[in-house]
């Protein structure tokens, strides 16, 4: 069976692909393509964050008894990402390419350092403390925001 690390890391890579497509299109001012790719990215990202916040983190917290530890930091960083996504939506609506690219650069770095912490620390720990049973994985799959 796939581990939590495998599944969630795969979601990160998928988000990266969609993100780079949106950023690349916007840099060429191909707005129609940028709109489509950005919408796909945004939905994938928000779904991923929701899966963590509503299923994975609560399971981790209840197993370890820690609600103010690593998951609290991850939730705070999710908030930061959501705030940036909102700003990027606005820049895209206004076709403001410089603003869009400045903000996506920021989101990209924020996202990557966040992903690194999850992939190297939080997910492997989750794999240790949680049994990645089909129920937990199914619960995560059922979370969608699109």
């Amino acid at each position: 069976m796939s581990t939590i690390t495998d599944i969630m890391t795969h979601e990160h890579r998928h988000c990266d692909d969609l993100f780079t497509a949106a950023e690349g299109a916007a840099s060429e001012q191909n707005w129609a393509e940028a709109d489509g790719a950005w919408t796909q990215f945004r939905d994938a990202l928000l779904t991923h964050l929701a899966r963590e916040e509503t299923v994975l983190f609560p399971a981790f917290e209840s197993q370890t008894g820690q609600t103010q530890g690593p998951t609290a930091v991850m939730r705070m960083e999710h908030q930061q990402m959501r705030a940036l996504v909102e700003e990027i939506n606005e820049a895209l609506r206004n076709r403001a390419d410089e603003e869009f690219l400045g903000l996506t650069e920021t989101l990209m770095v924020l996202m990557q350092q966040h992903n690194m912490k999850e992939e190297q620390i939080l997910y492997p720990m989750s794999d240790q403390v949680l049994v990645a049973d089909s129920q937990l994985l199914e619960q995560m799959r059922q979370v969608t925001t699109a």
């Binding site: 530890g69 690593p70 930091v73 991850m74 705070m76 912490k117 620390i121």
Partner: peptide, 10 residues
């Protein structure tokens, strides 16, 4: 699991 000392926000 011992989470003491683990911080992702150092």
């Amino acid at each position: 699991m011992n989470l003491a000392g683990l911080s992702l926000d150092n």
